[in-house]
């Protein structure tokens, strides 16, 4: 049975350049990209937490690393990744519960996810850059 399902030819349309995603699809792929980015960055983020708690000296070293403009840029990007993943994830929990699945509300909540995550990123970004 599994063999049959796996061997059966199914249509695949994955021309990345030509795909025109609807808004909820756009939110969905950003959910995946942000999740992947957070996974890839997990080592560095754990290192930052480790250093911040290890000792006074390492805490200062961690702050010096995090104060680099490039590190601030990456941290701001990861903050957006986390916040987008967070907001989109909450939207999916509602969709799983069959709430807001009609087209109009699914579009509205997609805009809300994009807007709220960017607004929160601006907040966190302001803290990262001008603290």
């Amino acid at each position: 049975m599994a063999e049959f399902a796996a061997k059966r030819k199914r249509p695949v349309y994955l021309d990345v350049v030509r795909i025109r995603l609807p808004l909820p699809g756009f939110v969905s792929i950003l959910h995946r990209i942000s999740g992947a980015a957070l996974f890839v960055s997990a080592f560095w983020l754990l290192w930052l937490l480790d250093a911040s708690l290890a000792s006074e000296g390492k805490f200062d070293a961690m702050r010096a690393v995090a104060a680099q403009p490039f590190a601030k840029l990456v941290l701001t990007g990861l903050a957006w990744g986390f916040l987008h993943h967070f907001c989109a994830g909450i939207r999916y929990l509602f969709l799983d519960a069959d709430l807001g699945v009609d087209l109009a509300r699914a579009r509205a909540s997609s805009w809300a996810v994009l807007a709220v995550s960017i607004a929160l990123t601006a907040l966190v970004g302001g803290w990262i850059w001008w603290r």
Binding site: A42, L46, A54
Partner: peptide
């Protein structure tokens, strides 16, 4: 590995 590291970070201090 990260899980072990996280435990170490949380309980080492």
């Amino acid at each position: 590995g990260y899980a072990g590291w996280a435990v170490q970070i949380l309980w080492r201090n």
